[in-house]
Amino acid sequence: MVREDGKRNFVMLEDGEKTRQFTGRMPRQAALKAARRLEGYDGYNSESAAKDNPTKIRLLERGTDRIHVYHAWAWMDDAPSDKPEWMEGEISTVTKGNVSKQEIEHLE
């Protein structure tokens, strides 16, 4: 269901359990947020290496029967040189993520 500000809520489904909620105007925006929070990608320093081992994520769109299915991967990268002040100091790497949409499932 779309909120007044145009954003939609998506819940990650893991083993049939609703685990975490992500918000975005489009399903891909929520999927990218979910990809950056995936575990097990700490050792990858390039997108190509991470892309070879994607994780399947399923996002249920709240208020509908649609489940958006993505292949997602994440990798560690150097923080940009123009990083904001709050990142100054100890933060030298950031997590980047990418997704590839596979299908849309419908709840029965």
Rank of each mutant, 00 (worst) to 15 (best):
L13F: 09
H68V: 03
M26L: 15
R28A: 12
N98S: 13
R66F: 03
E108Q: 13
G63T: 01
Y41E: 06
A49W: 01
D15V: 02
R62T: 09
K51G: 06
A35K: 04
S92E: 10
S92N: 11
K51C: 02
E47Y: 02
E14M: 14
S92C: 08
A50Q: 01
E61F: 00
D42K: 02
I104S: 02
T19Y: 12
D78G: 11
I67K: 00
R28F: 13
E85Y: 00
K18I: 11
A31S: 08
T19S: 12
A31E: 02
A31R: 11
A35Q: 03
S81E: 14
E4T: 03
S81W: 02
P80E: 01
Q102N: 08
M76H: 11
T93P: 08
P80M: 01
S46H: 03
K83W: 01
T19F: 11
V69R: 07
M76Y: 09
N53M: 14
Q21F: 07
K7L: 14
Q21V: 13
M12R: 14
G43R: 05
L32A: 05
D5Q: 08
A50D: 00
E103R: 15
T64W: 00
T55A: 13
E4W: 13
H106D: 06
R58V: 11
I57E: 06
A35W: 02
D5P: 00
G43C: 03
G89D: 07
R8K: 15
S100C: 10
Q21E: 13
L60N: 09
R3D: 14
G16L: 10
P27D: 06
V99W: 05
M87E: 07
D78N: 09
K51H: 06
L13A: 06
R37A: 12
Q102W: 11
D78K: 10
T23R: 15
Y70V: 00
R25I: 09
V11I: 15
S46D: 09
L60R: 14
E103P: 08
I104Y: 06
K18W: 14
L59Q: 04
R62I: 10
K7E: 13
A30D: 04
F22R: 03
R58D: 05
V2Q: 14
S46L: 08
T64P: 05
D82K: 04
G24L: 09
D77G: 00
T93A: 10
P54M: 06
M87Q: 12
Q102I: 13
G63R: 02
K56T: 12
Q102H: 10
V99K: 03
P54V: 05
D82G: 07
S92V: 12
L107Q: 08
G43E: 04
Q21G: 12
T23Q: 14
G24Y: 01
S100D: 08
G63Y: 00
G97K: 03
D52T: 07
W75A: 05
P54I: 01
L13N: 15
V2D: 15
Y70N: 00
G43Y: 02
D52P: 10
F10Q: 05
Q29F: 14
D77W: 00
A30Q: 03
E39S: 11
V99C: 05
R25A: 14
A72S: 02
L60I: 07
D15H: 12
